[in-house]
């Protein structure tokens, strides 16, 4: 397997598996991250996944740079990438359009589609969670149908409601917390992606498969009420 390792400050390294976003590279990143984390290497503090990268935070007072590099090389040499890990599939219910999906009409118009066609194209694929970042639990997803790829808003919103489902260029995602943002918001999910008081605070993990399911306002309200 081809990879390069670079230093990132004096307490982390980044392993690069090429520069092309792909499902296969993402699987490599996920598998190796899991192994590195679960190996309990003394001095390795945490990993951060990217599209084609693994950043490893280490404590140089507990593991030397050279020991770290050699350990990681050995892990990469040993890994069996043919064996695929079990994946969780999570269905995300979404109320498309209306007040909570104000840009649905926009996305339809810019792509010469009807709103129903946008919803259909958005709900058909299985999406892979490549990694999480930007805000707590925000998934970077692979698998968006090119026919609904839409540029970011020219004027980002100061406040995008938590649960908003959006599109930005070739990506789709869900805002886990209320934050500023420039994505085209096409719908809203009543399911929380980040709940800090829960034992499992994050709904999604890298490697999960997610699907979107269109729901009616009545179903949306039912889910909201069941959470209270």
């Amino acid at each position: 397997m081809h990879y390069t390792v670079k230093t990132a400050g004096d307490q982390s390294i980044i392993i690069y598996f090429g520069e092309q976003i792909s499902k296969q590279t993402s699987q490599t990143v996920q598998k190796l991250s899991n192994i590195i984390e679960s190996s309990g290497i003394i001095g390795v503090e945490e990993v951060i996944l990217g599209y084609t990268t693994i950043l490893i935070h280490y404590a140089p007072t507990r593991i030397s740079f050279h020991t770290l590099i050699n350990t990681i090389k050995a892990i990469i040499m040993d890994v069996d990438l043919a064996k695929t890990d079990e994946r969780n599939t999570i269905e995300i219910p979404v109320l498309y359009g209306e007040e909570l999906g104000p840009d649905l009409a926009n996305v339809a118009r810019l792509n010469n589609l009807s709103e129903q066609e946008v919803i259909k194209l958005h709900t058909e694929p299985d999406y892979t969670v490549y990694f999480l970042g930007f805000s707590p639990g925000f998934p970077f997803l692979g698998g968006l149908d090119e026919r609904i790829a839409t540029p970011r808003l020219e004027n980002p919103r100061k406040k995008v409601q938590a649960g908003s489902v959006g599109i930005a260029n070739h990506q789709t995602g869900i805002y886990p917390v209320t934050s500023p943002g420039g994505w085209q918001i096409i719908g809203h999910t009543p399911i929380p992606l980040f709940n800090p008081s829960d034992d499992n605070p994050f709904l999604l993990s890298p490697g999960d498969i997610i699907t979107f399911k269109p729901i009616t306002k009545i179903e949306y309200d039912e889910i909201i009420n069941s959470q209270i």
Binding site: A8, G9, S12, I14, G50, H57, F134
Partner: peptide, 10 residues
Amino acid sequence: ILSEGMFMGA
């Protein structure tokens, strides 16, 4: 660049 992990002092 493609989004990747950040670190203190980057």
